[in-house]
Design a protein around this nucleic acid. Structure first.
Lengths: 107, 107
DNA sequence: ATAACATGTAACCTAATAGTTACATATGAC
DNA sequence: GTCATATGTAACTATTAGGTTACATGTTAT
């Protein structure tokens, strides 16, 4: 679980997930074009995502096809909707917490 | 958003959230008792959680009362249920897209 | 065969994490 | 006031993260 959260903690990696999610089967260079950092840096991010099982890759010829895997996210979703379900109902009605956090909300 | 995922990426911090969630208003030492690491290390974790807005603290006398805040988690939940909703139902997409996207990279 | 392309590996640098110990400050009990 | 308690701050260390450039390997096209 650490790996998944760690992988998702970097905006570049979440962006990669969005890109691959919209372009299933795209390769490393396709993804790297969206970033200003070097291709090697992108590959390291891909490696982290793959280690967290959020990406699946498959070699095809000289290129590597990338696929987004939603299962680990589903796992986290399940944890939150079960273990934290008690807080969802209670805190949603308490508007004090929401207004406090509304300003500092960013992407 | 980086802060929230980063905060959740360490199992000790997720454990802290569980502890504080079950003991609202508990203080730093109460939490530290659950860990073998030093109190200062625990305080650093608390600081990270507080910076991510997952914890709210309030001084009361000589101790600090801790509360779990579910709002940032709800924010993430919203993102996943909206942006990734396409993947939830059917995570297997046909392979038509990948051939199309690869041709477009002609330049 | 050779050139262009896609990916992989190695070595290196800087900054942030995660932890420690030692000391300082503030408060409640007596 | 004195002392135990609860928290806070400072300084240090080791490891990991995130990035770079240079070079190597494998594959497709001409």
């Amino acid at each position: 679980m650490d790996d998944v959260f760690q992988a998702l903690s970097h905006s570049a990696r979440r962006k990669i997930l969005d890109i691959v999610g919209k372009m299933p089967g795209c390769n490393v260079n396709d993804v790297a074009k969206y970033f200003s950092m070097s291709r090697i840096a992108v590959m390291k991010h891909l490696g982290i995502l793959e280690k967290a099982n959020l990406l699946i890759s498959q070699k095809s010829g000289r290129s590597r096809e990338l696929y987004f895997n939603v299962v680990p996210i589903q796992m986290i979703y399940d944890r939150w909707t079960t273990e934290y379900s008690q807080f969802w109902a209670s805190k949603l009605t308490d508007l004090k917490f929401q207004t406090e956090t509304k300003k500092k909300k960013k992407k």
